[in-house]
Design a protein around this nucleic acid. Sequence first.
DNA 1: ACGTTGATCAACGAAAGTGTTGAATATGTA
DNA 2: TACATATTCAACACTTTCGTTGATCAACGT
Lengths: 117, 117
Amino acid sequence: MYSATDPLSTTLSALADPTRRALLARLSEGEATVNQLAEPFDITLQAVSRHLKVLETAGLISRGREAQWRPCKLETARLQEVDGWLARYRMFWEGSFDKMGAYLEEITKGDQNGSKN
Amino acid sequence: MYSATDPLSTTLSALADPTRRALLARLSEGEATVNQLAEPFDITLQAVSRHLKVLETAGLISRGREAQWRPCKLETARLQEVDGWLARYRMFWEGSFDKMGAYLEEITKGDQNGSKN
DNA sequence: ACGTTGATCAACGAAAGTGTTGAATATGTA
DNA sequence: TACATATTCAACACTTTCGTTGATCAACGT
């Protein structure tokens, strides 16, 4: 009954947590292991590990294997999807309502399923 | 312990639901009342009303008062914040890592609080 | 005043999210 | 082998979210 399973919902849900966004911010500066990532936080290592699992499930990070370490790496594809989703709304604050009309026509033709996207 | 309260988390959490995104998409085409907004969905009017409350609390919509109707209107400020948050990562897929370096320097100077943003 | 329409509030239950502790797994080192 | 390090798994508790039903509030029309 509950909890959306579509990719965009999964992504946004993963991003809706300050700890996870901080982890991504750290990863934007380079790869890191779980322990390195956990260091700045007051929560347990296990909790951080689970946050990373959420990010991985959402496709926001990927992980390698080097001995007992599992270095995490930022993946941008899902963030690009968020960026794409925003495009529709960006036109509002950019004031180009002509583009907006064109955009609306286009998506209702190709259809992007308004109730899922 | 639970549930982040910072504005960006609230916004992303509100967006992490396909029903609520569909409501925003509908509102991007113009203002609408609760009944009009609820019409395409299989859930109860009360459920839609609560989704709208979530969107309003997040600042993603505002509401007027016209007799017994409460017309909803899209507000873009919070979406712009999401857009701003994305900027840091956009540099990755745009391949301009020089800009990235400059960006990182700038934010660690002015500080944007990595653990909250 | 009365009934209708638009919308919200309140109480409930099921499911999911987040943190903790303690155990388990896997790899590297002495 | 034994031990330390890195990470994950499992069980538990508490909170939050989402949908439902039933009641309530507010403004309209007759």
